[in-house]
Simulated scan of single mutants.
Amino acid sequence: MMRMLSVLALAVAISACNPGGGDSPDAAATPSPAATATPTPTATARATSNGARSVSEETDDFLFEYSYPAEAGRIAELASQLDVMLEQQRGQLADESQEARRAARADGFPYNKHSYTAEWKVVAALPGWLSLSNDVATYSGGAHGNYNLESLVWDKAKGESRKAIDLFVSPAALEKALGDRFCDELNRQRAKRRGAPVTKGGDDLFSDCPAIKDLTVLVGSSNGRTFNRLTLYAGPYVAGPYAEGAYKVNLSIDRAILDAVKPEFREAFSARN
């Protein structure tokens, strides 16, 4: 991103010194009547000495924001991976918003600026692991935007990243280990928001509990040494209508959940009494 901005800045500087864009003085002295002013995008990028990085760019087509904390930036391989994701998301947003503007113009509709924001946060920092969450919010011109939570767990020993759910034998194994704990707590939260008890299998579209495959799983820690708690995140439309917002259910890891962890990762976990 910084190299891209540097090249842009150099191009602007060269253009300012030679408005005609060529060697001929006549070419520089005779501006093209078809030339139009192009709005200059505003972009800021901040990389602190402790490893944190924050990027913000706004153009007529889109708003893009992306950041990650120092704990992630200090791990070179992880920072590189997050930087690649940054460039991919920024490029996708630029392409999609440009196409949406063309389509809006062709159809005679006003264009609503698209946006993508992502903020990586530390869930747990352990001696051998770093668990991160990513708060993502997007808007693509509709009635309202959308948002979600993503998971990334960095294995410091292997230099690899994976989703938290991949630390378990299978999603089905974790779902079985949870038993009714997740659903009971989710229904308690839903009843509080809806002002009425939630009956499983009722007429309400969102009366049943979502499957584990529809949730984001985060692994956390209360002792700074092992993963001993889970957060199960249900985004908009997963456990309730958009107006209800997202749901987060926090659970301590018990023996049943511990048994659902893959053997090679078992030492990173402990049951929480």
Rank of each mutant, 00 (worst) to 15 (best):
L10P: 03
I257K: 00
N148L: 04
D135H: 13
H114L: 08
Y233Q: 05
K200T: 08
S207T: 14
G159E: 08
N146V: 11
G73Y: 02
A27N: 05
L93Y: 01
L258I: 10
N223R: 08
C17P: 00
N112P: 10
S6P: 09
G245D: 07
K200L: 05
E264Q: 15
R225V: 14
S140F: 09
I165F: 01
F109M: 11
D208E: 10
A125W: 03
A271G: 12
D26I: 15
L215R: 00
N223I: 12
L230I: 10
R272E: 09
A76W: 04
A177H: 02
L258K: 06
T36N: 07
A29W: 02
R102G: 09
M1A: 15
P127T: 14
D155I: 07
I75N: 06
R194W: 11
P241M: 07
V238C: 04
R105C: 09
D107E: 15
A256E: 08
N273I: 13
A191S: 14
D26A: 15
D23V: 14
L186Y: 07
L149H: 06
A94P: 03
Y66R: 01
Y116M: 08
D61N: 09
E58L: 09
L8P: 03
A104R: 03
L251P: 12
G91E: 05
E77I: 13
L205H: 12
E185N: 01
L78P: 12
K176F: 07
W129S: 10
F168D: 03
E264P: 12
A196R: 12
Q98F: 09
G21A: 04
L205W: 14
E160V: 12
K158A: 15
E65T: 15
A13I: 11
S56L: 05
G224L: 08
E119R: 11
Y237H: 08
A28Q: 10
K192A: 15
V238L: 00
N112Q: 12
R272I: 09
R266N: 10
G159F: 10
F62T: 03
N50E: 15
N134R: 11
T30D: 03
K156I: 12
P171C: 06
D60Q: 11
D204H: 01
K262R: 10
D83L: 14
K113F: 12
F265W: 08
F206R: 02
S252T: 13
A196D: 01
G141Q: 00
P236W: 00
L82P: 10
F269A: 02
D203G: 14
A70W: 10
D259H: 12
L10W: 01
G235F: 06
G235P: 08
S133I: 11
A256W: 02
F109A: 12
G179S: 04
Y242L: 11
F206D: 02
T48H: 04
D155R: 04
L152H: 00
F168K: 00
E264R: 14
